[in-house]
Nucleic acid binder design. Structure first.
Length: 726
RNA sequence: GCGUCCUUAGCUCAGUUGGUAGAGCGUUCCCUUCACACGGGAGAGGUCGCAGGUUCGAGUCCUGCAGGACGCACCA
C-alpha cells in the first residue's frame, strides 16, 4: 500500500498536486478524447466572470462549488462538457478602486495623472487581480477549460462589443438622446439604476408660498428655475386654474411668470396636491416636461455647484447653500411652515459613494420598446423576420419556458422587473472600459470601430460594463465569427449565479443574445442564495465578518469547504456559513479516507477479474445500494445538489462505514471463505461507486483515493457515473 | 403602496406529489475493540410563529394575523 495512505488525509498537500495532474491531462477541455462512453449530449456553462477587483469571496466559492458539481456530473455522464472561465473588467468598480488607492497614497485624482497613466495603472492592478483570482478558482478544484479563458477587454471580446454596438445602432435599437441620467458627482460619471442604493434620511420638509399656492419641497435649493406649477386635472380645489394659464409669482430671486400644467402624475393626497417642477434634476419632473413640451433648465452643475440662475447663490455647493436659501425665503415671507421630521430617501452611488444628482445628459441609449426586425430567431413565439421589441422578447422567453428560472418564484420578480424597465443608458464618463465606437466631425456622426480619419474625434465615453457582460455567453464562444464552439455550446445549458445579480445581468444577456444570435443565452437559470454569517447578516467588509475561502481551504481543505457550501443550500435561499460546518466536512473527508483504506486492506485476496458468488446478506446490501444510486442520480438530474450531497454524506458514514464495514470485521476474521469473498467484492464495488458519486462534490480526495487504490493511469474525473451494481 | 420569502430541537437549517418530525453542531452517559478518538455505541431535547379552514389525515394546501428579511414603485 502506498505510504501516503497510511497517514491521515492531508488536503493541503494533495489538492494542488491533483489539480496539476488534471490540468496536465487536458481533460477539462471537451475536445480531449475521453475513455468513457459518450452520451451524444452537450453540457455547457460559462463562468460568471469575477470582477478583477481583488480577491474572491464566499459568494464566488458557492458559485464555483455548485457549477463544478454540475460540470463534473455531466462529464461523468458522458456529455461533451464545457465550463468556460473568464474575468470581467468591471469598469466602474475597478476604476473607482484604483482611483481611491492612488488618492490615498499620492493625493492625486485621475485628472492629475491623465487618461493614459491611469489606464496603465489599472492594467497593472487588473493583471495582479487576475492571477489571484485564477489561483483561487484552481484552489477550489474548478474543472474549467483554461484553454478557452476570456476577458471582457481582450481583443476578441472587444471586437464582439464593437460589432454588437454597430449592429444595434444600424437597426435603430441604439440611439443618442438628451435624457435624464443618474449622475455621480464624485466619480463624475453616469451610473445605472441598478448601481444605486437608497438610504433613508430625516430632513426638513418646506412648505413654500408660490403665488396663490403652497408647494412642498425637501430640496429648496433646486427651486430657482421653477416656472411650471403642476396639479392633478381632477383636483376640485384647483379647478379654476386651466392648463396653460399664467400667473406672476414672487419667488426667491424676484418675480417670475408661472404656467399652470395639469398632469395625472400628481398625487392629490400628497402635500397640498400642487408642485413645481425641476425637469433637469428629477426623473418624474422630466417625464412631465416631456409630455407637455416644457422648457428644461439646468440649475446645478456636474460638480454639485449652483449655476448663475441661482443669482447670489451661484457657485455655492448645493449642500451648503440650502441653509442660506431657506433663510432668504423666510425673510421674504415665503415659508409657510416646516415639517422637521420628513423621512426622505436619497440615492447613493453604490460604487462611488456620492449622492446621486439627476442631470440631463446627451448619452447613448438602448431602447427597450423600440421596434426592430429580428432577422434570425430560434425563439418559440418570435419568428425570424418579424418585428419585435426587447421587452416583448424578455417576456416571451420566460412565458414559453425557453428560459427556465429556479426557484420559479423569481420568474414573477423577473416579469415585474421587465414591466418597469426603462431605456438603458450605455454611456459612462469613465476611462476604463470599451470606448464607444462613435466618431464626430462637426455635425457628422459615424458609428464604426475604426477611426474614419484624422480629423474625426471619438466619443470620449466608455460603455456600461454590462454591455460586454451581456454578450458573454456568445462572445466567449467566438462570436461574431461563426465558430464550431458557438454551434456546439450555444445556447449554454445553465447559468448559475446569485439572485442579487438576476436583473442587471440576466435580462441584458437575454436581450443581447436574442438580438445577435436569435437564441436564448441559456436554457436554465439556477440562482443560489447569498452567504450570510452565523448571525444571518450579509457579509461585508464594514462588519468584518467576511469568511475568506482561501483561509477555509488552508484549514479544512477545498473538498470540505465545497460540501459545506452545497449541503443544505437549496436554490434561492440564503445560507449562513459557520466555520463548524466546514469543519464537520473535514471530518467526513477523513472518514472517507479511512474507510477506503480499510477496504483496500481487506480485499487483498480478491481476484480483480473474477466475481465471486454473492451471499444473500450481501444481495440485500446491493439492492439497497442500487436504490441509493437511483435516488442520488434523480437528485442530480433535478439539480438538487444540496440533497444529493447530504444523502451521500449520510449513507457513506452511517450505512457504509458504521454498519457494513463494522459487520464485515467478524466475516473477515471468521472461517466462512464464501461469505468473506462475497463481502470483499461488495466493499470494493460499493466503494468505487461511492467515490464516483462523491466526486462532483469532493473531487480532490476521491481522485486521490482512486489513484491510491491502483488506478495510476486513469482519472476518476472521467469514469462513468454509476448506474447499477450487480 | 405592490410583491416575494422566512418563522421546525439550545444554535444553523433540511423536510422534493399532504400519511403520526430529521441532519449537523452543541449536550448527557458508556467505550483508548487492530480503518478512523478527525472515532464508536446509547440517550435527552420540538403541541413544526398564532388563529381558523379544506381533508379520513397538514410542518406540507387555503384564509387571516403577528414578527423578521428582501425586491420594486412612489417620495413635489
Amino acid at each position: 500500500m502506498d505510504e501516503r495512505f497510511l497517514k491521515p488525509y492531508n488536503a493541503n498537500e494533495t489538492e494542488p498536486r491533483i489539480y496539476k495532474r488534471w490540468e496536465e491531462s487536458g481533460l477539462f477541455n471537451p475536445d480531449t478524447p475521453k475513455s468513457l462512453q459518450p452520451s451524444g449530449k452537450t453540457f455547457s456553462i460559462v463562468l460568471p466572470p469575477p470582477n478583477v477587483t481583488g480577491t474572491l469571496h464566499t459568494g464566488h466559492a458557492i458559485m464555483l462549488a455548485i457549477e463544478d458539481a454540475m460540470v463534473r456530473y455531466h462529464r461523468m455522464r458522458g456529455d461533451k462538457t464545457l465550463w468556460l472561465p473568464g474575468t470581467d473588467s468591471a469598469a466602474i468598480a475597478t476604476q473607482s478602486k484604483v482611483e481611491s488607492e492612488i488618492y490615498k497614497k499620492e493625493k492625486k485624482t485621475r485628472h492629475d495623472i491623465g487618461r493614459e497613466d491611469l489606464l496603465r495603472r489599472i492594467d497593472a492592478f487588473t493583471k495582479q487581480s487576475h492571477d489571484t483570482i485564477t489561483g483561487q478558482i484552481k484552489a477550489m478544484g474548478s474543472s474549467v477549460d483554461w484553454s478557452r479563458e476570456a476577458y471582457t477587454l481582450d481583443e476578441k471580446r472587444t471586437n464582439a462589443v464593437m460589432t454588437a454596438f454597430v449592429r444595434m445602432y444600424r437597426d435603430g435599437l441604439i440611439y443618442r438622446g438628451d435624457r435624464i441620467v443618474n449622475w455621480d458627482p464624485n466619480m463624475q460619471t453616469t451610473v445605472s439604476d441598478e448601481e444605486i442604493e437608497y438610504i433613508e434620511e430625516t430632513t426638513p420638509f418646506y412648505y413654500l408660498k408660490y403665488g396663490p399656492f403652497i408647494i412642498g419641497t425637501a430640496r429648496p435649493e433646486t427651486k430657482f428655475g421653477d416656472k411650471y406649477v403642476v396639479m392633478h386635472p381632477d383636483d376640485l380645489r384647483y379647478q379654476q386654474y386651466k392648463q396653460g394659464d399664467t400667473i406672476d409669482v414672487e419667488w426667491i430671486n424676484g418675480t417670475i411668470t408661472a404656467t399652470i400644467i395639469k398632469d395625472t402624475a400628481i398625487d392629490m393626497e400628497f402635500g397640498t396636491g400642487v408642485m413645481t417642477i425641476t425637469p433637469w434634476h428629477d426623473l418624474t419632473d422630466f417625464d412631465i416636461a416631456e409630455r407637455h413640451g416644457l422648457d428644461k433648465e439646468q440649475i446645478i452643475d456636474e460638480r454639485g455647484l449652483l449655476l448663475p440662475i441661482a443669482g447670489e447663490f451661484s457657485g455655492q455647493h448645493i449642500k451648503k447653500a440650502r441653509k442660506d436659501i431657506v433663510e432668504k425665503l423666510k425673510q421674504k415671507g415665503l415659508v409657510e411652515k416646516i415639517d422637521e421630521k420628513y423621512v426622505h430617501r436619497i440615492a447613493i452611488s453604490s460604487r462611488g459613494g456620492g449622492t446621486i444628482e439627476p442631470q440631463i445628459k446627451r448619452q447613448w441609449w438602448l431602447g427597450v420598446d423600440r421596434e426592430f426586425t429580428i432577422t434570425h430567431s430560434e425563439l418559440s413565439t418570435i419568428p425570424s423576420g418579424s418585428k419585435t421589441t426587447m421587452k416583448k422578447i424578455l417576456r416571451s422567453v420566460l412565458e414559453t419556458k425557453d428560459v427556465q428560472i429556479v426557484p420559479d418564484r423569481f420568474e414573477k420578480v423577473y416579469l415585474h422587473w421587465v414591466d418597469t424597465l426603462r431605456d438603458w443608458c450605455l454611456s459612462r464618463q469613465l476611462w476604463f472600459g470599451h470606448r464607444i465606437p462613435v466618431w464626430y466631425k462637426a455635425d457628422e456622426i459615424r458609428v464604426q470601430a475604426e477611426s474614419p480619419g484624422l480629423d474625426w474625434q471619438q466619443d470620449p465615453d466608455t460603455l456600461d460594463t454590462w454591455f460586454s457582460s451581456g454578450l458573454w455567453t456568445f462572445s466567449t464562444l467566438g462570436w461574431p465569427e461563426k465558430t464550431d464552439d458557438l454551434k456546439t455550446y450555444h445556447p449554454t445549458s445553465v447559468l448559475e449565479t446569485g439572485y442579487d445579480i438576476l436583473f442587471f445581468w440576466i435580462i441584458r444577456m437575454i436581450e443581447m443574445s436574442a438580438f445577435h444570435t436569435g437564441q436564448v443565452p441559456f436554457r436554465y437559470v439556477y440562482l443560489h442564495g447569498l452567504v450570510r454569517d452565523s448571525k444571518g447578516r450579509k457579509m461585508s467588509k464594514s462588519l468584518g465578518n467576511i469568511v475568506d475561502p482561501l483561509d477555509m481551504i488552508a484549514k479544512y481543505g477545498a473538498d470540505a469547504l465545497r460540501m459545506a457550501l452545497i449541503v443544505g443550500n437549496p436554490p434561492g435561499n440564503d445560507i449562513s456559513l459557520a466555520e463548524e460546518k466546514i469543519k464537520s466536512y473535514k471530518l467526513f473527508a477523513n472518514k472517507v479516507w479511512n474507510a477506503s483504506r480499510f477496504v483496500l486492506m481487506q480485499i487483498g485476496k480478491l481476484d480483480a477479474s473474477l466475481k465471486p458468488e454473492i451471499v444473500e446478506a450481501d444481495q440485500r446490501h446491493i439492492a439497497a445500494f442500487n436504490e441509493l444510486i437511483q435516488d442520488i442520480t434523480k437528485e442530480m438530474e433535478e439539480k438538487h445538489y444540496y440533497l444529493a450531497a447530504e444523502k451521500l454524506y449520510h449513507h457513506f458514514w452511517h450505512t457504509f462505514a458504521d454498519v457494513i464495514l463494522e459487520e464485515s470485521k467478524p466475516i473477515f476474521t471468521g472461517t466462512d471463505e464464501k461469505a468473506s469473498l462475497s463481502r470483499m467484492w461488495v466493499l470494493r464495488t460499493m466503494l468505487t461507486a461511492y467515490l464516483s458519486m462523491l466526486h462532483p462534490f469532493m473531487p480532490f480526495i476521491t481522485e486521490e483515493i482512486w489513484f491510491l487504490v491502483g488506478h495510476t493511469h486513469s482519472f476518476l474525473m472521467t469514469e462513468s457515473w454509476p448506474t447499477k451494481i450487480s
